[in-house]
Design a protein around this nucleic acid. Structure first.
Lengths: 195, 195
DNA sequence: TTATTAATTGATACTGTGTCAATAAAGTAT
DNA sequence: ATACTTTATTGACACAGTATCAATTAATAA
């Protein structure tokens, strides 16, 4: 590689960006007064100067975009390695997906306000489902419903689950989703009901 | 009644409110430059004075709230009368629901940006589904999946359908939704496949 | 220690908010 | 048609937030 992948970054930058991101999450949680997030408020909450914000971000959209990408890259990182070996570990990608969200429930709840986040989360789900369908294709199970229907309905369930404060366990939710699509096995791989 | 339900309203008010609502929809459609809607822009688009806006609305939130309620009251009006006689007409509430959205696709597409609108649309779906379940309860069909799962997955599908520009017909979509929940009849009431 | 880089400060021009009093225009009623 | 009432416009106001400076202070890296 021509560039060092771990260029040392000034710790002040790391600190400042982290503080602004935490401030953003903190402000987004205050849905009570429909708190419009402003650079002023972010700077106050982060206990940094307003001008400092502009040293790192173009505007609030820019900060939000970076946060969205970081959150979803971490999620994808948890899913993708599993694609190859989920037959070994017995953990379905959808379960890894739900477990990661479950472990970062507050973060995902506030991020769901962002349209771009929702779009990208949907795309990750489409990926998970299409890979699953690819595997199932050879196994004789006929696919009846268009993938957009399956993906969007799953997305609806997951969105509801996050917004409701993740009331079910990831395993239970995965089972319910599978039940919905007549996959009569539970998330652990055990047969629930004969077809 | 003590009050006349049709108090005559100054035509200038009707006209002004209509112009502001149209201006709002017009601005919301311009997602290209992430157009933040401002009172300034609304007044320009409506070809009215900025101060006039404040004669009718507290702020932009207030305008949006009124629009959301009007749109969804009209939708509810199309659904509710059907509850009683859908066995006569053969039209399921979910089909009336989808048909109304289909006929006002652009309006619903822009309104979906609003969180309150999404919440209320979801609640209408919950109502439709719970009434349907009430009917099915006596017919021996066992209900396997929690209603929140059914409602949120349906909401996901409908949301996707609206955002994608309503690519399927209401009847086809209703069929797909029913297929998903193992209701083996199509929206016209014909048997599609034996259980 | 000494460059170097980041953060703060105070200033700036700009856009948008929400409200007002005064005036013009449109609708209602006789 | 006239007088009365309500709505809309205009220009002004104080205020809050944006995005960008140049100059200064503080922290980091060599």
């Amino acid at each position: 590689m021509s560039t060092n992948s771990k260029q040392r970054v000034d710790p002040r930058i790391t600190r400042t960006k982290k503080l602004f991101k935490e401030a953003m999450i903190s402000l987004l949680q205050e849905n009570d007064d429909k708190s419009k997030v402003t650079v002023q408020k972010l700077a106050n909450r982060a206990e940094l100067n307003r001008a400092t914000f502009y040293l790192h971000y173009q505007d609030i959209e820019d900060l939000m975009e970076q946060m969205v990408n970081e959150v979803l890259e971490e999620l994808s990182g948890k899913i993708n390695p599993v694609f190859g070996d989920h037959e070994n570990t017995g953990t379905l990608p959808i379960v890894s997906f739900l477990e990661h969200i479950y472990d970062h429930a507050v973060l995902f709840q506030v991020m769901l306000e962002n349209k771009d986040f929702r779009r990208k989360l949907f795309n990750i789900l489409v990926e998970i489902i299409s890979i699953r369908r690819e595997i199932k294709k050879g196994s004789g199970t006929s696919v009846k419903v268009p993938i957009e229907i399956v993906a969007s309905s799953t997305f609806g369930i997951v969105t509801w689950w996050i917004q409701s404060g993740t009331p079910y366990s990831p395993i239970y939710l995965a089972d319910q989703i599978n039940l919905l699509y007549r996959k009569n096995i539970n998330a652990q791989g055990n047969t629930v009901k004969k077809g």
